[in-house]
Write a protein that binds this DNA or RNA. Structure first.
Length: 289
DNA sequence: CTAGGATCCTGTCAGC
DNA sequence: TGCTGACAGGATCCTA
């Protein structure tokens, strides 16, 4: 679930909340969700927070780093006496009592505040890594560039290197380009008017450039609007909002009218994932029965 | 090398 | 109401 914009939102949010606070304790409620010796974190503190694609990197002062990945349903929730900051997979946990039944790990800081790692499906994890672990990590070292760090030439070349693979599969492959997930792939394809089921090699140079620009744009706007955070989830009147409503043109809008041409948005399966698109704005879909 | 499917988990929702 | 299957904002492993 959480894609690059959500992780960046977590990074920015936590940066102003947990840095340089002594960790009193780290409680692991689900063994599967944590790798490393949690007791060794006592007395330590986080000194910096980085992000690489969808991976969160919490730097400890002693050279070690906690690598975090939210996968499908992970979220980070910080609570102190003044309130809370919640970002990641948007659901009822954003406003639930902490720890909740989906809390897998939590940290208590010396000022009495807490940081909770929640993860309904338990696909995500936090892992204590030494400098060497981090350097040798397969997932991190194989990550492709983020859309902003990729030149138009390289993006186009990448598409042609995987010309018989669907656009969707290429954009979801973190080894080729990192940060995009199911939402932003669909949104970027809609914005650039490319049907995600087309083979990568069929894009013209102009379409390739537009697709890259669209990927950058949809994610930039999502970051600027705060990704999926509690502030978007809880509306001013206290009711629950849907942060997708703010910018999603196609994602989970199947059956609704395309904002551009009014045609019904369709949902099909591409590269094993639910895929939303406008059949008129993004031509190329051949119905098979 | 690629593509497709199963898998890890828990929960929700549609359909009967 | 209760059951069943499909599906889910990710990534990996296996097979063909």
């Amino acid at each position: 679930m959480p894609e690059l914009p959500e992780i960046e939102t977590i990074r920015r949010g936590l940066q102003g909340l947990i840095l340089n606070k002594k960790i009193v304790q780290c409680c692991v409620l689900c063994e599967k969700s944590f790798r490393g010796e949690s007791d060794s974190l006592q007395g330590r503190e986080f000194v910096k927070i980085d992000r690489k694609g969808k991976a969160l990197l919490l730097g400890l002062g002693d050279g070690r780093t906690i690598l975090g990945h939210m996968r499908m349903t992970g979220q980070m929730i910080y609570v102190d006496k003044d309130g809370r900051f919640a970002a990641g997979h948007p659901d009822g946990n954003f406003i639930a009592e902490m720890p909740s039944r989906h809390t897998r790990v939590y940290f208590e800081f010396e000022d009495g505040s807490h940081l909770y790692f929640n993860d309904l499906r338990k696909f995500g994890f936090l892992a204590i890594m030494s400098e060497k672990d981090l350097k040798n990590d397969k997932f991190l070292s194989e990550l492709g560039p983020e859309p902003w760090d990729m030149r138009e030439d390289d993006f186009y070349e990448m598409l042609n290197r995987h010309k018989n693979t669907s656009i969707k599969a290429v954009l979801l492959n973190q080894k080729l380009i990192c940060g995009l997930g199911n939402i932003y792939v669909d949104e970027a394809c809609f914005k650039s008017k490319v049907f995600p089921g087309r083979n990568a090699g069929t894009l013209t140079r102009a379409e390739s450039d537009e697709l890259l620009a669209a990927a950058r744009d949809v994610m930039t706007r999502a970051i600027e609007s705060g990704g999926s955070t509690m502030k978007d989830y809880v509306k001013p009147d206290g009711s629950r909002g849907n942060y997708l409503d703010k910018f999603a043109q196609v994602f989970r809008r199947d059956g609704e009218a395309c904002t551009h041409c009014g045609t019904n948005i369709l949902k099909i399966r591409v590269a094993g994932r639910g895929t939303h698109f406008c059949p008129k704005c993004q031509p190329g879909y051949k119905e098979t029965k």
